[in-house]
Every structure is written in structure tokens, then in C-alpha cells.
Design a protein around this nucleic acid. Structure first.
Lengths: 168, 168
DNA sequence: ACAGCCATGTAACTTGTTACATGATTTT
DNA sequence: AAAATCATGTAACAAGTTACATGGCTGT
């Protein structure tokens, strides 16, 4: 529900039309999560369906601005006040993959780990380089989060390799 | 595509029926990601539709075992050999939330951070306790991954607070 | 008799996502 | 004139998820 709530939060400071919303969303998250413009419109329709936003009249250039409703504002506040918990999160594909490699007695599990480490290493390099071309605090924090996560992943991969070696 | 590939990987060591698959999946991931039994059947149907598995005849107790096809085996190998990259991953709700709190000039952004830190702390305690009742390497590695991630999250939250204070 | 587990399956829904169609305006 | 950007929108689909219906078997 990230995009849904993200757009809602952007609308909380005033009406916007679709194209503006994409711009502001990407200005915050940067190249990390590009947002397909089509998705903005589908999401806005669904927010409207659920009574969280309301479209206005099209202006002289055919642009339709959406306004947040009181219900929408409530929902946004609820979102900000409710922490993201562990069980809300989607299944982590990498973790499933290693767990299944173990269960399926994949012979090459250490190779799977090494492939992943190489890829994550490359990701870390991209992210570090990207930090130099960052504008604004939000973008920077998003990048830092990715970096922290990638580092944790590297540590976990090392840890997995160590434990698997132990078990031999 | 975690469940899809996960079930495929389990089937790679021999035919299984739905209920067995859920059991083995949960034996690996533990209480971390419980798998609704209905989802096993919907996923199996979709795997069949895509030619990756094939159902056999129902046995005397009405159980239908699925067998992986050559195409399915290929797909599984491809999965294991392809590292999970950064851009495959779903948007991280917490990161979006903080980025949007900044963009929306949420006054209480530090409160959002503090709420999250408390919740993550509690998660960490649960996870640490859960480690004592863990059986098997896979379950242990899954839990360790969650712990590493939660710790990275704590560090990131501290980092965010520090940077926001700096900017005042 | 009844609770609970084993076992299968379907219908309905959500979010996310992309491909496509359409046209106005702006820049080169 | 052509290319790029601004701008809206729809159709179609994937994957995940749950609620529900159904029935057999097992233990108390």
C-alpha cells in the first residue's frame, strides 16, 4: 500500500494532478523507484472509489486536480501513526530462495550465495556513486536506506556461508 | 514470485500434494511467513497453466500429487542462478513513509521515527526469543535474516533522526 | 457426538504493473 | 517538420491473499 498512501500524503498539502504527483513522488525517491505514469491514474481512481480523494473539474489545459477528503486525511494520519511491522512486509525473495535451496538440497547453494554477493556488491557500488548526484534530504535518506540494507544483506550472506560450512 | 518458485523448488526433489507443500514450506520459513493453504492450490493451478508442473491422478485418499516438468526444472535452475537485484524488490513501505513525511512536511516526522523504533525494537525481541524454539538450519537462517534487517532498520532510523536534527 | 486435523478446491478481491491510445504543447 | 515532453486515461494481466464450501478421518 505504499503508492496509495504516498500519493495521499502528497495530496495532503494541497490539490495536485496526476503528472505533478509523479514528479513529486520521484523527486523524493529518486531513481530508486521510478513510478509509471499509468499507475498514478489507476491509483487515483482507486483512491476515489474508496472515498479518500475527489477529482475537481478539468482546467483550461485539461488537467484534473485531485483533493484529499476528510476520510482521506484520517487514513493518512492513521498511516503515519501506525508503525510498519515485520508481518506487514512482503516475503523476501532472497531469503525464500536460500531456504528453498537448502530444502531442495540444491548442490550449488554456496554458488547461489556467491552469485548473490557479487550482485549485491555491484548494487552497493551503484548506490554509493548515486549518492553524489542526489538532491534533497528525502532522496539521500532513501539511498542511505538501500545502502544499509545491502550491507546487512552482505553480512547475512557471510553468516549463511559460515553456518553452512560448520554443518559439513 | 517467491511462492511460485518456492513450491517449484520443493517439487524438484519429487512429487508432492498441496498439503505436503505447505508443511514443507512452513518447516523452512517457520512462523515468519505462514502460508494460507488456499494459496498453495491457486499457485499450483497457475504453475500448471504455465506448464511448469503436472498433476497426477488422485490417490485412494483423494490426494493429487504434482510433478515438476522439464520446463519447470529449467525455470527453477534459472531462478537459483539469477541473483535478486535491487530493482526486483518491492517498494519498502517504511522508506516511502519517511520520504513522504518529509515531502508532506509532516510536523511529527520525528514522532513517526520514534514510533517505528519502538515497534522494531519489539520485533527484535520477538525474533531473539523465537530463535530458541527454532528447528533446523533453514528456519534459523530465516530468523537471522530478519534480525539483521531489523538491526539495519534501527541504525537507519538513528541516522535519519541525526540528519533531520542537523538540518534544523 | 463433536472437535480438530487432513485435504482439495473456487470465487472474489487487492495492489502493482505495463502496454497502448490519444492529443496538446514546447523545443530543436 | 520532427522530436520530446506534458498530460490523461483504459484494458489487461500477474501475484498474492482470504473467505468460503466441501468432505473424510481421528481422537476424545
Amino acid at each position: 500500500m505504499s503508492i496509495r498512501h504516498g500519493l495521499l500524503a502528497l495530496l495532503s498539502t494541497g490539490p495536485r494532478y496526476g503528472y505533478q504527483l509523479r514528479g513529486e513522488f520521484e523527486a523524493s525517491t529518486g531513481a530508486t523507484w521510478p513510478l509509471n505514469i499509468g499507475q498514478v491514474y489507476t491509483t487515483l481512481s482507486r483512491l476515489e472509489r474508496d472515498g479518500l480523494v475527489q477529482p475537481g473539474e478539468a482546467d483550461d489545459q485539461g488537467r484534473v486536480s485531485y483533493t484529499i477528503t476528510p476520510t482521506g486525511r484520517e487514513e493518512m494520519t492513521r498511516w503515519f501513526n501506525t508503525p510498519v511491522v515485520h508481518s506487514d512486509r512482503p516475503r523476501d525473495e532472497l531469503v525464500i530462495k536460500l531456504a528453498m535451496a537448502l530444502a531442495a538440497k540444491e548442490t550449488d547453494i554456496t554458488q547461489v550465495i556467491r552469485n548473490q554477493r557479487t550482485a549485491t556488491m555491484r548494487t552497493l557500488q551503484h548506490l554509493t556513486r548515486a549518492k553524489n548526484t542526489t538532491h534533497g534530504t528525502a532522496q539521500r535518506l532513501v539511498l542511505d536506506s538501500m545502502i544499509f540494507q545491502a550491507e546487512a544483506e552482505q553480512r547475512w550472506l557471510d553468516h549463511c556461508e559460515a553456518i553452512l560450512k560448520e554443518e559439513t
